[in-house]
Design a protein around this nucleic acid. Structure first.
Lengths: 201, 201
DNA sequence: CGATCACCCTGACATAAGTCACATGCCCGG
DNA sequence: CCGGGCATGTGACTTATGTCAGGGTGATCG
């Protein structure tokens, strides 16, 4: 019997996934979490064979939770299940020690199969996604460039960003400018969006 | 036996929902669609008792599909199932003749119950959401104001928007300015985001 | 019929955003 | 221990945005 933990913030989707996996004879849902912190805590207590983590969750996101669970529960295989097949996400998932990276667009029939393969020691990654991650190259942005992009993504003005980050306005402008240049777009809005899309933030 | 059609673009979620509903004795999944257009076509052929539609789908979105299905299959109850409980979405769903508006955050156990209530002729809406939709008031933006906001949401410059909409740059600036004023924010980025959040686009 | 409103445009203006050149200091790898 | 990259800053500059004050049209409605 494979003992599975489920972490997904949308109740209905989580329940539906539990129903889907419950149909399999050799799988057992032993815990369900609604956010990253709860997932880490539960994994420590329940020690499941597999932790299936969504990325987009309140609190600690799935990637952070993955790293923590790997550190705290060595025998637990971590699988990432996400809506967005962003190259940067895949990269970070691998760095966090994940055994699988699945997107919610994928075929429902193969989820259980993926879990079994992971338990058998395999790694499960969509080949197309792996290629995209490799061809996209690593994150070109420096820490500070990422900071100003996220701080400004909500429509904040340069002055706002400078205040929030305790920087001078000129510095913020310079970071934004270099980020825009690196990403190869025309303004910070496009920069924030493409960076987001690639999982660079 | 209640005959249910499922429309949801994420394969895995759709399969999981099917598994969840398949556990109920009195429910039967008679069709599954991956986008709005397919949902309309299938509903016309299969004539289900209930159509469970996601909003965020490629092609025709769930709200558009809801209106079309209501027109083409009068006996079919349409239920909206969405990630985002945006007031404008709820309003549009009601105008499209939907019988229920559920968010994916909600409790999984109540989905089947909601379907039964809808078939019995009830309307199922989250009370908190209904209150929010009423207090938020109707969409304050004019058609053109919405147009410029969506055209500019990808980081496009004023000139880009003007070209795409066959308008003069000054006109675009004016629409953006009035949209910003109406929404009560400081720039078009915030305007686009809050409008999006409220389901005004 | 006249008021009102969405729609479209122009021109002028103030401010915000983005670019460039050039500093300083820190730390890390060759 | 020196070069290069990153973090941080300044000042000057160009361009993009947002605001204001107008002036036209056509449709709708009391």
């Amino acid at each position: 019997m494979i003992r599975v933990m489920l972490a997904e913030d949308q109740n209905l989707v989580r329940g539906a996934l539990a129903a889907l996996l419950g149909l399999e004879e050799d799988l057992e849902i032993v815990a369900e979490a609604a956010d990253g912190d709860e997932a880490v805590a539960l994994a420590g207590r329940v020690r499941p064979d597999v932790a299936l983590l969504d990325i987009e969750m309140p609190g600690a996101d799935g990637l952070t939770a993955a790293a923590r669970i790997r550190a705290a529960v060595p025998g637990c295989h971590v699988m990432i299940l996400t809506t967005f097949g962003r190259p940067g996400y895949l990269r970070r998932a691998m760095e966090a020690g994940a055994s699988a990276f699945l997107i919610k667009d994928g075929p429902a029939e193969q989820l259980a199969a993926a879990i079994r393969r992971v338990v058998a020691g395999e790694r499960v990654i969509d080949p197309a996604l792996a290629a995209a991650a490799l061809s996209a190259g690593p994150n070109p942005l420096s820490q500070r460039e990422r900071d100003v992009l996220v701080a400004g993504s909500g429509g904040a003005t340069i002055a706002d960003i400078a205040t929030r980050l305790h920087l001078s306005e000129g510095t913020v402008r310079n970071y934004l400018s270099s980020a825009i240049t690196k990403v190869g777009v025309r303004n910070r809005i496009e920069a924030a969006q493409t960076a987001e899309r690639n999982g660079w933030l």
